[in-house]
Design a protein around this nucleic acid. Sequence first.
DNA 1: GACCTATCTGACTGACCGTCAGATTTTCGT
DNA 2: ACGAAAATCTGACGGTCAGTCAGATAGGTC
Lengths: 210, 210
Amino acid sequence: MTDDVLAADGRVIGTRAIATRRRLLDATAKLLTEQGILDLRVVDITRDIGSSPATFYQYFNDVDEAILELAKEATEDEKPLVRLLQPGWNKKTGLEQAHHFVDAYMVFWDTHHAVLRARNLKAEEGNRHFRAVRTEANLLIMNALAAMVTEGVNAKRLPDSLDPFTTAAAVVAMCERLLAFQPEMAKRGSDKNAIRNTLATLLYGALTGH
Amino acid sequence: MTDDVLAADGRVIGTRAIATRRRLLDATAKLLTEQGILDLRVVDITRDIGSSPATFYQYFNDVDEAILELAKEATEDEKPLVRLLQPGWNKKTGLEQAHHFVDAYMVFWDTHHAVLRARNLKAEEGNRHFRAVRTEANLLIMNALAAMVTEGVNAKRLPDSLDPFTTAAAVVAMCERLLAFQPEMAKRGSDKNAIRNTLATLLYGALTGH
DNA sequence: GACCTATCTGACTGACCGTCAGATTTTCGT
DNA sequence: ACGAAAATCTGACGGTCAGTCAGATAGGTC
């Protein structure tokens, strides 16, 4: 029951409608990537699937609602990353584990960057739905990271002036933003591999204190 | 000559027009802060200064042009921050110097966050003018940071797997993004002071290796 | 006060948003 | 296989905003 798909007015919809709704979501994601949120128009989304604007409003009250749904889907793809962040990174394998996480995070980011960017903008502009989704996604990662920092602080490898939760936030911030800079940095000689190595090294250092 | 103020069509304008243009820029900044870029309308900007849309287009070809100008003004406010980032942070005063920079950066961010957010969005969505402005602003800080990292690497305090320029980018990324998270983190117990301390500690560590 | 130039704006066209009534397609009972 | 009922889709419309232009207004000069 709970996972029935609903139309904009809340009624449960059938298989044809689910397919249409799906095509609308895919088109929204595609145009968000190609044109950016500022030029995203409902007309274009529906034109893309060979339909009319009225169809869009059958399933979403506005474009935000569609983007919010995409953001929730992105969160699902982020969940597996948490498994790569367990306390216990040591001198032998820690840096390699950091690389694993960075690699997985880069794939995640590549897949969803347009939606994540839109989500973050909306969240920062104060939209509470997007805030909730972003906070939920970030907490997944941050709680795992904070546990690692706490371990490092307890073991006296990290200074206790580091607040674990804030440090976790800083690490997430760094990952997110550095990947957003990527296209510009590529032009200045920092290739993908340099970013990967540097990010892994910084993570390893900030999280473990080794 | 070069610093004459121009209208949208390129002609030099007089004092009355300069004042009007200024009021338009101020109103744009205000509404960008209050409503966000997605709900920014030319009608609202001109209504705010008691004028009509046509007036706006006398001075700017579109809203982007006004935001771009604001972004350039923000860059001017960022320049003084570079003075706070000189190689030579040592064990005695380094952490304090990191705090100085973080404090100044936080003020800068508070003042311009709406414009910077808009600038970053536009840059990330591929607008080359905004990319150029952002790159220029970031390079100011990054070059200074990269010099500090290079010093740390040369002194063997930092691992040479850290690419100086990428590390600098990561540090900027961390500062920028963490402040954007601030409102949400406040709700979870990370107050402004925790952010300040953590950021300074991480900066000090990443830049000097102490 | 008459003229010239700089500045401003009313009014218009075209595009998109969001709605609704009615058309079309699918489902289902017989 | 057929017709009625339900689900889904869309043409067409009123409202708002973007961007343009011709003409109105204000300011300066002689």
